[in-house]
């Protein structure tokens, strides 16, 4: 794995005062920039906030938005909210899993694609929906979902 840009980590840390309550927010920012939480960055956070490393790890493990391994470059997110479920979301998941060769929550071996689920994007009227890198696509069928990747 390429070495971690500690200057960037430092820059992120300095956006917030060193109070333990900012732990989650800092980890989220690191996640957003690196697409995962590098170990070096977690050590730096622990030092900056003066909290035990164990607490950093437990928070990192608890929240779904945080990940210890890099997420895919392109993130395909299928809505599994109730409205989408009723209108066939599981069919989309099945088709995408087969095509990408990965399960929900996984990243393809080449790191290009990540497949995730979300519970409702507020676009229930367009159900079933999925997003690719944040752009919403509605009224999907399994075959239309495959056109997204």
């Amino acid at each position: 794995m390429a070495s971690v840009d500690l200057n960037l980590v430092d820059e992120i840390l300095r956006t917030r005062p060193p109070e333990p309550r900012h732990l989650l927010a800092l980890l989220q920012e690191i996640q957003a920039r690196f697409r995962y939480l590098p170990k070096e960055a977690m050590l730096a956070v622990a030092g900056y906030l003066d909290v035990p490393l164990a607490r950093v790890f437990s928070v990192a493990g608890f929240y779904k938005a945080l990940s210890l391994t890099p997420k895919g470059e392109r993130l395909v997110t299928v809505c599994q909210g109730t409205a989408c479920h009723l209108r066939g979301a599981s069919g989309l998941v099945g088709a995408l899993e087969k095509r990408l060769g990965i399960g929900l929550g996984q990243t393809s071996a080449d790191g290009r694609y990540g497949l995730e689920s979300v519970n409702c994007l507020g676009a229930c009227a367009l159900a079933p929906v999925a997003t690719v890198d944040g752009t919403v696509h509605g009224h999907l069928s399994p075959s239309k979902a495959l056109e997204l990747v």
Binding site: E19, P20, R21, H22, L23, L24, A25, Q28, L49, R55, S58, V59, F62, Y63, K64, A65, L66, N119
Partner: peptide
């Protein structure tokens, strides 16, 4: 504003407060 971390249980009031304090949302 505080942004959640993608955990449903954090909508529960005591978990939510734990989350604002920067801890696991239990």
């Amino acid at each position: 504003t505080v942004e959640g971390g993608g955990a449903f249980v954090c909508g529960e009031s005591t978990s939510l407060m734990a989350s604002i304090e920067g801890r696991e949302g239990q």
